[in-house]
């Protein structure tokens, strides 16, 4: 099963670093800003399902949203990244959620990642606020650190589980709300709370 994941978020929150750390386990202290979209594949196992994650990295600045749909139009999941030391970056997450819901609809699975947790002492984004927001939009929330390789596996696993569940439901001609798979990661309770009706056409990659 091929699943497309997009990394979205303001500039310099660490999208590229997350990508490199997660896929290649590499980290560069001095990363140049990203303009070119790039994507990398990773095979993972979600329960009994073999899934190939295609993770897309994009430019962060809002103006590049003019190109945005190219990246996320047929995405199964989005990882919205913010920087816990930068409150501005969290407001961008809200914008992204709105935009995704508007353009892609409710089908896209969203996970929010608070990156740079290694800089906890400089935290500017309040945890309560984030959790409340994540709950209100039906997204899971994780803390990550690309630098110290914290939380990334969990984060992507959660997203993958959600996406697999949704895809299965889709293939089974499922209706909204039935998307709890049997073979999900045992510790994760997957709640498909997107609520809206499913697209009948296949939106995901082949």
């Amino acid at each position: 099963m091929r699943l497309k994941v997009v990394l979205l978020g303001e500039g310099r929150v660490g999208k590229t670093s997350i990508l490199f750390r997660y896929i290649r386990n590499e980290f560069q202290e001095k990363q140049q800003s990203t303009l070119q979209a790039s994507y990398m594949d990773k095979r993972i196992k979600v329960g009994s399902v073999d899934a190939q994650l295609s993770v897309w990295d994009t430019a962060g600045q809002e103006r590049f949203h003019a190109l945005g749909p190219i990246y996320y139009r047929d995405a199964d999941g989005a990882l919205l990244v913010y920087d816990i030391t930068d409150s501005e970056s969290f407001t961008k997450v809200r914008k992204w959620v709105k935009e995704l819901r508007k353009i892609v609809g409710n089908d896209i699975n969203i996970v929010i990642a608070g990156n740079k947790i290694d800089l906890e002492r400089n935290r500017q984004v309040s945890e309560a606020e984030v959790l409340e927001y994540a709950k209100s939009v039906g997204a899971s929330h994780f803390y990550t650190s690309a630098k110290q390789n914290l939380g990334l596996e969990e984060c992507f696993n959660e997203l993958a589980t959600k996406m697999v569940a949704q895809n299965k439901a889709k293939f089974a001609g499922g209706v909204a709300g039935l998307g709890v798979p049997k073979g999900g990661k045992s510790k994760l309770v997957v709640v498909d709370d997107t609520g809206g009706g499913k697209k009948s056409g296949g939106g995901s990659c082949c």
Binding site: G11, R12, K30, Q31, Q32, Q61, E88
Partner: peptide, 17 residues
Amino acid sequence: KDTLHTIEVDLLRTMPD
């Protein structure tokens, strides 16, 4: 503010080496 912020953030990532 936004523009200034973006510029400042990008400066750190302009040919950092």
